[in-house]
Simulated scan of single mutants.
Amino acid sequence: MKRSVTLGTVVGAALLTVVACSSGDSTVSKTPGPTAVPTPAAAPAPSPVPSPPAPGPTAAEDPCAVNLADPEILRAVSELPPDPRSNQGWSPEPLAGNYNECAQLSAVIVEANTNAENPNTRAVLFHLGKFIPTGVPDTYGFNGLDSTASTGDTVALTYSSGVPGLASTVRFRWNGSGVELIGNAPR
């Protein structure tokens, strides 16, 4: 009999559990429905993250930087006499150069504005950013600038025909009152 009581007790407890968890006594039906959540006032915008400083002044901001787009170059090229070989003017776009307003001597290389296969080239020289129109040694034929041999008062102009061993460099220096040829530099 003890077994039947125990078995009856277990069955009764199981029945009570099933009745207690019927659909009428569910936790879902006792959970309150959604309520309106008040809308907060406009949240303050996050403060902007400061951007890192610019890497340095650009050529337009730093007059002592090389600036091959400076308007002084265009003005100077427009004043040049025509190329003696083609009788054409000169292209204002430099092929090379180190023009800046702070250098005692700087230069740009331009070419004749012609459709010829090998247009004539020349250097245009500047003192403190201003075109030097007279008193300059002949600068025709140069087609590059050696920046390693150039300094604030010296410009090293180069000529290269593309043939090995025929390249040359000629240096010009501002002597305090004008430009002078100071010689060839080894290449």
Rank of each mutant, 00 (worst) to 15 (best):
R3K: 14
R3D: 03
V5S: 11
V11T: 14
L15C: 12
L16I: 13
T17H: 09
T17N: 04
V19M: 13
S22R: 02
S23T: 00
G24T: 00
V28H: 10
S29H: 02
S29G: 09
K30N: 05
G33C: 01
T35P: 06
T39I: 02
P40K: 06
A41T: 14
A41S: 14
A42N: 05
A42Y: 08
A42D: 06
P44F: 03
A45G: 14
P48I: 03
P50F: 02
P50Y: 15
S51R: 13
P53N: 04
A54P: 05
A54I: 12
A54W: 09
A54S: 13
T58M: 07
T58E: 00
A59V: 11
A60R: 01
A60Y: 01
E61S: 12
E61M: 13
D62V: 01
D62N: 14
P63Y: 03
V66T: 11
V66G: 09
L68N: 03
A69T: 10
D70W: 00
I73A: 13
R75K: 11
S78P: 02
N87P: 07
Q88K: 08
P94I: 08
N100H: 03
Q104S: 09
Q104G: 04
S106F: 03
A107H: 01
V108I: 10
I109D: 04
E111V: 05
A112W: 00
N115W: 07
E117L: 15
N118Q: 14
P119S: 02
T121V: 07
R122A: 09
V124E: 06
L125F: 12
F126C: 00
L128D: 06
K130E: 04
F131C: 09
I132P: 01
I132T: 10
I132K: 05
P133M: 13
V136N: 05
V136D: 05
V136Q: 01
P137I: 07
P137Y: 00
D138R: 08
D138N: 15
T139Q: 03
G141S: 01
F142S: 09
N143C: 08
N143K: 05
N143A: 03
G144T: 11
G144W: 10
S147Q: 06
S147I: 15
T148Q: 10
A149W: 13
G152Y: 07
G152D: 11
T158Y: 04
S160G: 07
G162A: 01
P164I: 03
G165C: 13
A167R: 05
R171G: 06
R171V: 04
F172C: 14
R173W: 05
W174Q: 01
W174M: 08
W174A: 02
G176M: 10
G176A: 02
S177V: 09
S177T: 15
G178F: 04
I182A: 14
